[in-house]
Simulated assay, not measured.
Amino acid sequence: MGRRWQRISFGDAVFEGINHLVMLALCFITLYPIWYVLINSLNEGGDALRGGIYWWPRMFTLDNYIAVFRDNGIMLAMGVTVAKTVIGTALHVLFTAMVAYAFSRRELLGRKVYMGIGTITLFFGGGLIPTFLLFRDLGLLDTFWVYIIPVMFNFFHLLIFLAYFRDFPEGLEEAAKIDGANDLTVFYKIMLPISMPVVATIALFHGVYQWNDYFTGVIFINNNDLHPIQTFLYRIVTQAATSEIVDTTSIEKSMTMLSVKLATMVVTTLPIVVVYPFLQKYFVKGLMIGSMKG
């Protein structure tokens, strides 16, 4: 080990040291705001207003989180978020994979036309007002399905699936069809099971989107019972009074609007923050596997 370090020049050592310092600084800049929100949410609300809390809670308390979970609206919003994330992700992956499998078939009529139309959607959108009018005419406004149906398909995700499906040997499908399998059987019994890395990648992409999406609830949902947790958090952060979000009778003197906001932010972001690092490896594996095959 000593000889290895002896072979490193002074300039290389300085370069590595600077790289480590820069990366540590970037990590600190990224993580400290999260830590700041967490410690202030665990501090007594009135004391937190005095400021000066930077590293540890000065007056530790769980009253802020008790107030958050005491409100039935938060738990209902969390249920909506979990439901739309699970259902939306499952349908999105299945539908996008099916369309991608069809696009991978060279005998598909009009395949180039469909690809051209899909490519246009990567650069241009209809805009908010036409989208609102379309959802209204389809009867999606103020329904749970406004979270699911409009995003069941994504052309960029199709391209990821397509790059993977194109690398499968044609003999695999031909052998299955000789045994009597049709296209649906080949897709469900062969293509989908051996495509789990890219399936996990797309599921993570869309799952994170579904969990973090607040805009759909703000624009297309007027029924508060159908608001997801992120829209609920948006309402908390943007409103000056607590009467519509958290019952004022449940907030004691040890709590303030700011402390309840911070606790709500932690509750809404913690699940995806905990899950994301364990699934992050699928991003690289799923995105690179199509280029590495063949």
Rank of each mutant, 00 (worst) to 15 (best):
E107N: 15
F161W: 07
G207Y: 06
L192N: 07
K112T: 13
A240E: 10
Y234E: 05
L42W: 05
R106I: 09
I66N: 01
N224L: 07
T242P: 07
V186T: 05
Y32P: 00
N212T: 07
A13I: 15
L184V: 13
L109Y: 14
V274L: 09
P150F: 08
I34Q: 05
I8F: 15
A102V: 12
V14F: 15
P57D: 05
P197R: 10
A181C: 12
S243G: 14
G118P: 13
P197A: 00
T268M: 07
S195M: 07
W56P: 03
G51W: 04
V260C: 13
H157N: 13
Y234R: 04
V113L: 14
R235V: 07
G110H: 14
R3C: 04
Y54N: 01
V151E: 05
T238Y: 04
S243K: 15
G110V: 08
F278C: 02
V151M: 04
M255R: 11
L140A: 08
A25E: 00
V275Q: 02
S250V: 13
V208T: 08
L62V: 00
G171E: 14
T85P: 06
G116V: 08
H20E: 00
L140R: 09
L76I: 13
A181N: 11
A83H: 12
G180S: 08
L138C: 09
I29D: 00
V274I: 13
G294R: 10
E173G: 04
F153Q: 09
L279E: 00
L122K: 01
V273S: 05
W56A: 04
D137Y: 05
V284R: 02
L184C: 09
A175G: 11
K112F: 14
I229S: 06
F124T: 02
H206I: 15
L21K: 00
I129D: 01
N224G: 13
N224E: 08
M292S: 07
P130K: 07
F123G: 10
W5C: 09
T131N: 11
T89I: 05
N154P: 08
